[in-house]
Design a protein around this nucleic acid. Structure first.
Lengths: 164, 164
DNA sequence: AATTGACATGTCGAACTTGACACGTCGAGC
DNA sequence: GCTCGACGTGTCAAGTTCGACATGTCAATT
C-alpha cells in the first residue's frame, strides 16, 4: 500500500494536517500518486493507531497537525531499502500516447496538439514549484524530483512534436 | 475507465484472445496500465455486448479471438480526440524516487542502487521489444512508444546516478 | 501412461479508490 | 450582521482492482 508511504513521506518533510496533505498530494506528489481526503483521513487515523504518526498540535477548526514518529521513519526506510517495489502503474496519459499511433494522421494531429498543450501547462506548473522551493529552501528533499520531472517532460515534448 | 480503451487499442493492433491480451498488458502496455485476466475477461464480454468487439474465431481450448468493430474504433477515436484526459496516476516507482531525498546518504545509496539495477533490467527488456518489432514490422504503431520509453529511461538513469 | 508446463477461461471476496453528501469554522468584504 | 469562500474533518455507496481459487485442454517429455 503506497498511500501509507506517500503520506509518511510528505509528513517527514514537514508536519501537516490532513487537509494540507490532500493539497500536497495534488501539488507535489500528484504526478506519482493521487489520493483524496476521503482516503487520507482514515489512513492518518490508522497510522496514528500504528504509532507511525502522532498529533503534534491542534489548531482552529478542529484541525490536527500530524508528524512522523521514529517508528514511522523506520517504516519509510524499510520500505525503500528492503521491500521489493511493486512496479504496477496506472497512467492514463501513457495509454493515450500509446494509442496515438492507431489514429489517422489528421486525427493524430488533433490529439497530439491537445497533449502538447497540456504538457506546456504541466511544465509551467513544475517551473513554478521549482521557483517556490528555490526561494524557500533549495535543499528541500523534493527539489531534485522536480528536476527529474522537468527533464522527462522535455523528452516527452520533443517526442510529441515528432508525432504531429 | 481506461481498461476499456487499453483493450480496444491492443485489439486494434491485432485480434487476440483474452489470454494473449493479458500477456500483452505486461509486455507492451505494462508501463502504462496493468490488468490481470480476472479483469480482462469480464470487460471483453461487456465490450462484446456493447458491439465494440466481436469474436472472429474460435480455437483450441475454448479460446475465442476478438477483433475491434467499427463502433470500437470510433470509441477509441472519440476518446483520444474529444474526451478530457484523466491525469490521475499511480506509480509506486515514482513515489519511491520522491522519498529518496528523505534518506540518510548511506541509506539512499542502497536504495538508489536497487533502482538502478531495476532500470537496467527494464531498458534491456525495452531494447528486446524494439528489436522484435523492427524485425517483424518497423511500421508497427507501438514502435514509437518504445522509443519514448527508451529516451525517458535514459534520463531517469542519469538522474538516479546523480542521486547516489 | 503419467507428469509437467503453457494455454485458456472463469468466479469471488477483500481491498482500494472515487465522488458525493454532510457538517461545521474562520476571516474578509459588503 | 451577512455572505462567501477557503479551511477542516468525516462517512458512505458505487465502482475498480487484486489475488486466490477453480476448472479444463493440449503438447512435449519421462
Amino acid at each position: 500500500m503506497s498511500l501509507r508511504h506517500a503520506l509518511l513521506g510528505l509528513l517527514a518533510t514537514q508536519p501537516a494536517t490532513g487537509y494540507e496533505l490532500a493539497q500536497k498530494f495534488d501539488k507535489s506528489l500528484g504526478t506519482a500518486w493521487h489520493a483524496s481526503h476521503s482516503q487520507i483521513y482514515p489512513e492518518l487515523a490508522r497510522l496514528a493507531d500504528a504509532g507511525m504518526v502522532e498529533v503534534v498540535g491542534e489548531g482552529a477548526r478542529n484541525s490536527r497537525t500530524y508528524a512522523v514518529t521514529e517508528a514511522g521513519y523506520d517504516e519509510i526506510r524499510t520500505w525503500l531499502i528492503e521491500t521489493d517495489a511493486n512496479r504496477s502503474q496506472r497512467n492514463e496519459t501513457a495509454v493515450r500516447w500509446f494509442l496515438l499511433g492507431l489514429l489517422k494522421p489528421e486525427d493524430r494531429r488533433a490529439a497530439v496538439d491537445r497533449e502538447l498543450a497540456y504538457a506546456e501547462e504541466y511544465v509551467a506548473n513544475l517551473r513554478q514549484i521549482a521557483e517556490q522551493i528555490d526561494a524557500a529552501n533549495p535543499e528541500h528533499p523534493f527539489r531534485k524530483t522536480v528536476d527529474l520531472g522537468l527533464r522527462t517532460s522535455s523528452v516527452m515534448q520533443d517526442w510529441l512534436r515528432e508525432q504531429r
